[in-house]
């Protein structure tokens, strides 16, 4: 059974339709890379999955549980909505760490407030996650004392602490200096080996090719092409995909 199933998702801002009917599904442990030119709706799609925006049409199903249905969006209460969005995690382009908290506190804050275990369990788990992103030495540092790459790795640990079914990344390396992208991509790669289901919006085509099981090429609010990296990146069928790939390479 698919972990994630997205059906005919549509979203408009005012008169502009940004998502024009998005359908795809993702199996457990799969990594989906979303590529496409600027303004094609990639961020909007991730924001709809994470309930930061609400689609005008369509459904989102996680593990068979309908977590969003445009027909009945009024029916979820605030606290139900919070439960539903925990199926997803989101790593932002700009990290958005909480500046007043240390690395450890950033990772433990949400599990603590949501009572996801005893304080000892939460801390032990956070320490493990921080170690897994290679930041044990910085555990008591504040975000302002970290490089962009380190901050983004903390953001990944923070998202993982809630054990989302699907972890989303919105261009996780595009706010970073080129020499720092490697360390973040390495962490994402290691998560794949840990069997996390992930959706990564990225401009790093080589990374997408190596790490992703599926590639989704978006253009103008529609899925122009969907398939394995071999299909979409090596042998694109659509003219738009070809044009895009030749532009970014």
């Amino acid at each position: 059974m698919a972990v994630l199933e997205v059906k005919s998702l549509k979203k408009s801002f005012g008169k502009t339709q940004v998502l024009k009917g998005i359908d795809f599904s993702l199996e457990k442990g799969e990594v989906l890379a979303i590529i496409g030119s600027s303004g094609s709706g990639k961020t909007t799609l991730l924001r709809c999955l994470n309930s930061l925006e609400f689609a005008d049409n369509g459904t989102i199903t996680v593990n068979g549980d309908v977590i969003f249905d445009a027909e009945q969006k009024q029916k979820f209460s605030e606290s139900e909505l919070r439960q539903k969005r925990l199926h997803f995690g989101l790593v932002f382009q700009q990290f958005n760490l909480f500046p007043q908290y240390t690395v450890l506190q950033n990772v433990t804050l949400a599990p603590t407030l949501l009572k996801k275990g005893t304080p000892e369990e939460i801390k032990a788990n956070a320490v493990k996650l921080i170690e897994s992103v290679g930041l044990s030495e910085k555990i008591d540092f504040y975000p302002c004392q970290l490089s962009g790459g380190q901050q983004q790795r903390v953001a990944i640990a923070r998202a993982l602490a809630l054990q989302p079914d699907v972890l989303c990344f919105d261009e996780p390396t595009s706010a970073l200096d080129p020499e720092l992208t490697g360390e973040v991509l390495k962490v994402i790669r290691s998560l794949k080996d840990g069997n996390s289901t992930m959706i990564v919006v990225t401009h790093e085509i080589d990374f997408a090719h190596d790490v992703a099981d599926k590639i989704l090429f978006m253009a103008d609010g529609v899925i122009e092409e969907f398939g394995t990296p071999e299909e979409v990146i090596e042998n694109p069928k659509s003219e738009r995909t070809k044009a895009f790939l030749s532009r970014v390479n």
Binding site: R82, F92, N96, P99, Q100, A110, L113, L114, R158
Partner: peptide, 27 residues
């Protein structure tokens, strides 16, 4: 306070008052 702070709290499943008191207030 950047809007991203509130959104980070939202995607972590925090309630509006948790976001206000634990995330944005001190900033």
């Amino acid at each position: 306070v950047p809007h991203g702070q509130q959104e980070a709290g939202q995607v972590l499943g925090l309630s509006k008052s948790q976001i206000f008191f634990k995330v944005t207030l001190l900033q």
